[in-house]
Amino acid sequence: MTITELLPPDVEPVTLAEVKAHLRLETTEEDTLLTALIHTARLHLESQTGLCLISRLLRLYLDDWPEGRVIQIARGPVQTIEIVTVYDSSGAPVELDTAGYVLDGAARPARLVLPERRATERALNGIEIDFTAGFGESGADVPDTLKRALTLHVAAMFELRGVLSLDDQPGAVPQGYERLIAPHCQRRL
């Protein structure tokens, strides 16, 4: 199972103005760096939690259908299933009818049951499921604890701006960060 991002989010969960207010910065000299740090902090948080903070289009690749009827989608929260494509013996894509699908998008991982499961002839990545995942279209839809974690993380990275290059970030995770994101992390046994 592989998931790729088809379209990046249009906005970040926290704005430059929110971060600057937290840091008590009034000049624009560091705006480019802060914007990049916000992006880095979001990517780090999303990799830690398995969440998409801002809604975007993703694609799940499967080699074959799972043994049970339930397809698990590791990124969430899943809002909608857009398209399900299966590749036939000639390698041509066939779009499946998704009418009547059942989606539990809030579950972690999200769960999907499709009414039709046509066999794929491709050995690898024969099934593609395009879906939209995220809390919403703007930072206002993102839980406050996650926004707070992002702001603290950006501040910690900003503190290290003279020590670490942007490519070496995130260089530090601030105290309290783990506690803020813990309720949103998936734990495995």
Score class of each variant (00 low, 15 high):
Met1Phe: 08
Thr2Asp: 11
Thr2Tyr: 11
Thr2Gly: 04
Ile3Val: 15
Thr4Ile: 15
Glu5Phe: 02
Leu6Gly: 06
Leu6Tyr: 02
Leu6His: 02
Pro9Gln: 05
Glu12Gly: 01
Pro13Glu: 00
Thr15Ala: 03
Leu16Lys: 06
Leu16Asp: 02
Leu16Gln: 03
Lys20Pro: 01
Lys20Val: 00
Lys20Phe: 01
Ala21Asn: 12
Ala21Glu: 14
Leu23His: 07
Arg24Glu: 13
Arg24His: 09
Leu25Ser: 04
Thr27Cys: 09
Glu29Gly: 06
Thr35Met: 05
His39Cys: 03
Ala41Gly: 07
Arg42Phe: 01
Arg42Asp: 01
His44Tyr: 15
His44Arg: 13
Gly50Ala: 08
Gly50Tyr: 08
Gly50Lys: 11
Leu51Arg: 10
Leu51Ser: 01
Arg56Cys: 02
Arg59Cys: 14
Leu62Glu: 09
Pro66Ile: 11
Gly68Ile: 13
Arg69Met: 13
Ile71Leu: 12
Ile73Ala: 04
Gly76Ser: 13
Pro77Met: 07
Thr80Gln: 11
Thr80Lys: 11
Thr80Val: 09
Glu82Lys: 13
Ile83Gly: 00
Asp88Gln: 08
Ser89Thr: 08
Ala92His: 10
Ala92Trp: 13
Ala92Arg: 14
Pro93Asp: 05
Asp97Ala: 10
Ala99Thr: 12
Gly100Met: 07
Tyr101Gly: 02
Val102Phe: 12
Val102Ser: 12
Ala106Gly: 05
Arg108Gln: 11
Pro109Phe: 09
Pro109Tyr: 11
Ala110Asn: 03
Leu112Gly: 02
Val113Thr: 14
Leu114Cys: 06
Pro115Gly: 08
Glu116Val: 11
Arg118Pro: 00
Ala119Ser: 15
Asn125Ala: 13
Asp130Phe: 05
Phe131Ser: 07
Gly136His: 02
Glu137Cys: 00
Ala140Glu: 02
Asp141Lys: 01
Asp141His: 05
Pro143Leu: 12
Pro143Asn: 06
Asp144Arg: 10
Thr145Glu: 15
Leu146Val: 04
Ala149Met: 05
Leu150Asn: 02
Thr151His: 04
Leu152Tyr: 10
Val154Arg: 07
Ala156Trp: 11
Ala156Thr: 06
Phe158Asn: 08
Glu159Ser: 10
Glu159Gln: 10
Arg161His: 12
Gly162Leu: 12
Val163Leu: 15
Val163Pro: 02
Leu164Ile: 14
Ser165Phe: 07
Leu166Phe: 13
Asp167Asn: 14
Gly171Pro: 04
Gln175Leu: 09
Tyr177Trp: 14
Glu178Leu: 14
Ala182Leu: 15
Cys185Phe: 03
Gln186Pro: 01
